[in-house]
């Protein structure tokens, strides 16, 4: 049934995250049209009022723009998409950093640990 959502975060924000990921990965390209609110609701099994909120939030972030009578489109402003990419990257790094700090790792250990991990991955070939 649709998809699973985490309990601790509003559903509209979880869909914002998902759309942002699609934009960063290039699954959604600048200028691409998003599904209508109703279509998106049906695809995800989510209340249209919630989807409306998702779209409003994305608009507030200036990641998408709604053109009257035409629909909602991914921004064609590359800088905004780059900013989004950096912001999401920083969020992930911050989470990693805080977790490692909490376990008592030093900055050097963190860096060498990450390097070691990436090296191992490379040797095996990614997936």
């Amino acid at each position: 049934m649709g998809e699973e959502f985490q309990a601790s975060k509003p559903i509209y924000m979880q869909i914002v995250d998902k759309i942002n990921q699609q934009i960063i990965r290039g699954d959604l390209l600048p200028g691409n049209k998003l599904p209508s609110v109703r279509e998106m609701a049906i695809q995800t099994g989510v209340n249209p009022n919630t989807i409306q909120r998702t779209y409003s939030e994305l608009e507030r972030m200036e990641i998408v723009e709604t053109r009257r009578g035409q629909g909602t489109f991914v921004t064609e402003n590359d800088n905004l998409i780059k900013e989004l990419k950096v912001r999401l990257q920083m969020e992930i790094i911050e989470g990693f950093f805080n977790n490692m700090k909490e376990l008592g790792f030093s900055d050097e250990e963190m860096l060498s640990g990450l390097e070691f991990y990436i090296k191992g991955k490379r040797e095996k070939g990614y997936d």
């Binding site: 309990a7 601790s8 975060k9 509003p10 559903i11 509209y12 209340n47 919630t50 909120r53």
Partner: peptide, 9 residues
């Protein structure tokens, strides 16, 4: 439903 998640997780 959404407020419940936002306010109280």
């Amino acid at each position: 439903v959404e407020e419940l998640r936002e306010m109280e997780g």
